[in-house]
Design a protein around this nucleic acid. Structure first.
Lengths: 212, 212, 212, 212
DNA sequence: CATGAATGAGAGTTCATTCAT
DNA sequence: TATGAATGAACTCTCATTCAT
């Protein structure tokens, strides 16, 4: 009875510089809190405590716990995209572009270990963003494959499924060698070796003669 | 997984046939409930309601909400293992074994679409099982790769990373073509095409001449 | 996200005798709590404290704070109806029936002083019940007026408006002489005098010669 | 109502013209906000939003949420008083004066439909004003009855109870025919018919011969 | 074994009020 | 005077778990 009549008063873009700073502090704190505890164990008060602001201030910037989580998912999704595109070199070969993308992703994951817990938990908290993230990423990879085919550097029958395969490979290599890496492993050396795996999937001269 | 004899009061194997049936009903109901809502949104009362038993009866068979979830994760983890091993044919080529394993996994995922939500959520609810599941699976794949190398059917420098790459590929192809498959897509045909992707990673005659 | 998926599990009729008793205790406690503090100042914990049950038990019987309030409004609305009908005497004159109804209402209000605060606050908490209460009551009065007209004991042009006028009269007399009565006033004697007021509105021999 | 000099910091009469305008805007906005949502669902930010001023500005003019509500109750209470007195005609008969008072009240309620929600909610927010409003109004009516008795136009035994009865009648007729009026009803015609109801209560020649 | 009422810690969210600019 | 960010107390509601029958 009147509880649904949400006041749309909150959660607009901050009007002042001070407001912008507070919003950033909350986002950073939330990254840590969600990364450490996961969405459900994390608490708003934990976030504000880390951010050093009062509990109520949270709601000046975000409508709900879900909302800040979604904002984070979007941030990280964009982070992955930017890491890949930032590593691109127009003069590189298609295969090299792919290698650099994986390498950049591994670096990004090493810097932001929370990303797995945040993106993965989106499957439960905000399934739409979760799906969007992977579908978008797959499309981006698919576009790179297409470019490689256009340049005739890749076999010519690559399709969506190959993009998903590459993506899965990258994600799991990141999980194993960036996030779960035993500190004693020479993670970087490993990653280099690893970065070459995709080659077999993509290059010409193999793969067409299916059959047993 | 330490589920036995922790608390002698409860959660032992049912002594009667009736008890065994009730336990099964709870497990099946939990699969649906967790699969639909995820761990945190799922409720014990939702599980017992679906199972058609009284709320209190739950605790006759499971100590906690976590316990039944863990039991499910173990079940599914074993299901994946059995699906792969069941598909094995001692006379098949190493590559074919790999193809059949993926195919069997895709079938399994199509039959048990909840598996992704349950295994994935274990990352948050019971990280140990989550990690165990993937490390075990990776080891299993690694063993197959080793067999292929022993038979000289695969290139001879495959290592753990390749197993993780294959696993990631399989998982994401399952997500895309078994769980998220557009019903209008010919999922089976797609899966077949897909099953050949691993080939480039594994076969000889390519991959050694690394370099840029 | 998932917060709206209300579990319809609660708030059914109690299955056991013990349950019925607890529900009654809550209803009685709520009458006092709402009557003393009004809906918004009242708290669920105040209700359960008065009832001597745990906070959570409240939700075994009522879905929300609104729900128990609505149950109370319905109870009181029926109480008013029963008080009036209980006072009816088939052999009494129409005017006497009206007098007795007011008298019964005053008695009821004296016994249940909370009624004003509860019915009145329904205007804000549950407008539908509020309106329903008064419209139903007005109809009941209207029916009595009609009976009086049929017996030719009342003037023959009484209509809905007269019923509302009588109702307003009764309600305000109740407020003044049952609820706000100075303890030193001889409330009962007063009420008798008062009970005769309606007479002028209803009897024949006056009222038609309108004009200034 | 003790609103002055409680806290010298704020809530004095605005010194500038601009200040007076802002205060007026707040009062008007509050009328709408309280009228639509009721006191508790209404919010200060809702009021300032409607008034088009900043949240903080509210406290330049009113000490608390209660304070502006009280100011409104007083305004409306005076509005009712002025409507009645404004309709008075020294040459009219006592009965006619009564009729005009009801008619004026109905007009006022039609113009200010919020009045019911605001006065009624005062019962919970500021019981003192609520009681004061009705006691004052009853006294005013009583004075008119006395005048009618003095002029020997009314029966000579009217007392406080009759004033409350008249007031209740008026209030409920207003609720039914001014606030809840079905737009399709000829509200004005109805109100005229209605305005004659009081007559039976007040005029001579009936009512003394009590008894059954 | 089964039942369902009882428990209470805990979390998200609201918003009147204050304060620095 | 005006602005809008900051504060924190308080409350409703959830649900895993316990317990008496």
């Amino acid at each position: 009875m009147g509880r649904d009549a949400k006041n749309a008063a909150v959660a607009t873009e901050p009007a002042t510089e001070r407001g912008r700073r507070t919003r950033r502090k909350l986002l950073d704190a939330a990254t840590v809190e969600f990364g450490q505890k996961g969405f459900h164990e994390a608490s708003i008060s934990g976030i504000t405590r880390r951010a050093g602001v009062a509990l109520g201030s949270f709601y000046t910037y975000f409508d709900t716990k879900d909302a800040i989580f979604r904002a984070l998912v979007t941030d990280f999704s964009n982070g992955v995209r930017d890491a890949a595109s930032g590593s691109a070199d127009p003069d590189a070969s298609a295969l090299d572009t792919e290698r650099r993308a994986l390498s950049a992703f591994l670096d990004f994951a090493r810097e932001h270990k929370e990303i797995y817990r945040i993106i993965d938990e989106a499957e439960f908290v905000d399934p739409a963003s979760y799906r969007l993230h992977y579908e978008t990423t797959a499309k981006r990879i698919h576009a790179r494959l297409q470019a490689g085919m256009d340049k005739a550097e890749f076999r010519d029958d690559l399709e969506e499924a190959h993009a998903w395969a590459i993506m899965g490979m990258n994600v799991f290599l990141g999980l194993r060698y960036a996030v779960w890496a035993d500190p004693s492993e020479e993670a970087n050396r490993k990653a280099d070796a690893v970065a070459d795996i995709a080659r077999g999937i993509l290059e010409k001269g193999i793969g067409s003669q299916t059959g047993t």
